[in-house]
């Protein structure tokens, strides 16, 4: 009887032992399967997030368009401000040019320069075979 008890005890222990080991193996492999499944789900979610045919993807695309439009509008505003400044500066410079050109001495040298430039064109025409 003791032997039987020992055998019984041993077999119960053995059965439990093997059962637990088997369960651990199954759990471990199932965990691997779950991980792979999670990875697949993540990839699907990543795809859905950008796919324009989904709400999420469409929203992303719209956000990108809105951002681009906003950037363009900001650029336009900055350019318009710069253009305004340039217009004012150009007006000042043009006035300065007029004033300088009206000066008698400047006008004299400008005319001399212009005449020599025409003479130079005449000479250069001969280099171009005209």
């Amino acid at each position: 009887m003791l032997l039987l008890l020992a055998v019984l005890g041993g077999s119960i222990y053995g059965a439990l032992y093997f059962r637990n080991r088997t369960a651990a193996l199954e759990a471990d492999n199932q965990s691997r399967v779950d991980d792979a499944q999670s990875e697949l789900d993540a990839q699907k979610a990543a795809y859905a997030a950008i796919d324009p045919s989904t709400d999420e993807g469409a929203a992303l695309q719209l956000a990108s368009e809105n951002e681009a439009i906003e950037q363009a509008q900001q650029q336009t505003q900055a350019l318009e401000a710069e253009n305004e400044k340039l217009r004012a500066e150009n007006e000042e410079l043009a006035a300065q040019v007029s004033e300088l050109e009206a000066d008698e001495d400047n006008a004299y040298y400008l005319k001399a320069y212009e005449s020599m430039r025409k003479g130079m064109e005449l000479v250069e025409a001969y280099f171009n075979g005209e």
Binding site: V7, A15, Y17, F18, R19
Partner: peptide, 8 residues
């Protein structure tokens, strides 16, 4: 028990 153990 033995059978169970064997099976396990």
């Amino acid at each position: 028990g033995l059978a169970a153990c064997a099976f396990a």
